[in-house]
């Protein structure tokens, strides 16, 4: 069950790899995941004693290197997909970045949340990394016609396999110390991962659904409205509003409260 998502992702990967746009976006997502994992592990590592701290820092550095590899790869696959928008004039950014904004708001807003135990964290790493290994192996096998996949994936797989090894070892050691607490912790982690998978699935529905809504809205409402407005001289691409206000600005309470 827990490996289902990665299996499906691996199996449909040719559909992604064969489209430069889709492939570049997926690589960007991989890159972002690696970056967040880097931050996360480096932060947890600081709270661990030596030599586990060094081991975790090595893992964190691997993730940072992978982040760079995925980004470079994405840039080579589809340069303009990965290029930044010109100062974001439309007021948009990648979905990932927006979610990051929300996550960062949510995280410090709950400073008293319970931190995972070392066993839970290592189990989480073990499950996540073994899922990644499965997905990359499928990716490598199914896309063996693709030179880039043949070249890059083995380099990543070697690291991921090492991460699976050390996280399993540390989790085992922790388990021996307190079997009952760790068993409860294991199910907690499992539940967490399954819940995240469900949320991701629902988020996919949200993305597709809202994409459909905005598409309908754009062609069904905005476009006819725009054509009519333009026909009657209400707005032009080079002149979005009739006149920009000039003169003294009243810096009163009304000014400061208006958003």
């Amino acid at each position: 069950m827990i490996y289902l998502r990665e299996t499906v992702a691996g199996l449909i990967s040719p559909w992604v790899v064969l489209s430069p746009t889709r492939f570049a976006r997926q690589l960007q997502q991989f890159a972002a995941t690696e970056l967040y994992t880097h931050y996360d592990i480096a932060e947890v590592a600081e709270r661990q004693p030596s030599p586990l701290r060094e081991e975790m820092h090595r893992h964190a550095n691997d993730e940072l290197r992978h982040h760079g590899i995925f980004l470079d790869w994405a840039r080579k696959v589809a340069p303009y997909v990965t290029a930044g928008a010109a100062d974001d004039p439309s007021g948009s950014r990648s979905r990932l970045e927006r979610e990051e904004v929300r996550a960062l708001v949510a995280q410090p807003a709950a400073p008293h949340r319970r931190l995972p135990t070392l066993f839970e964290y290592m189990t989480y790493i073990f499950l996540s990394e073994s899922r990644a290994v499965l997905q990359f192996k499928l990716y490598q096998w199914i896309n063996r016609y693709d030179r880039r996949c043949r070249e890059w994936i083995p380099r990543l797989l070697a690291d991921e396999t090492r991460h699976v090894g050390y996280s399993a070892r540390v989790a085992r050691e922790e388990f021996r110390r307190a079997p009952w607490t760790c068993t409860k912790g294991f199910f907690r982690v499992l539940g967490y991962i399954l819940r995240q998978d469900l949320l991701d699935l629902l988020r996919l529905v949200q993305i597709l659904g809202s994409g459909l809504v905005t598409g309908l809205l754009y062609y069904g409402v905005v476009t006819p409205y725009g054509l009519v407005k333009r026909a009657f001289g209400g707005v032009r691409r080079g002149r979005l509003r009739r006149a920009a206000p000039t003169g003294p600005v009243a810096l009163d309470d009304a000014f400061w409260s208006r958003s």
Partner: peptide
């Protein structure tokens, strides 16, 4: 409004 129908991606 001024760019329709050429700005779907930006709008979305």
């Amino acid at each position: 409004v001024a760019n329709a129908p050429f700005g779907l991606t930006a709008f979305r």
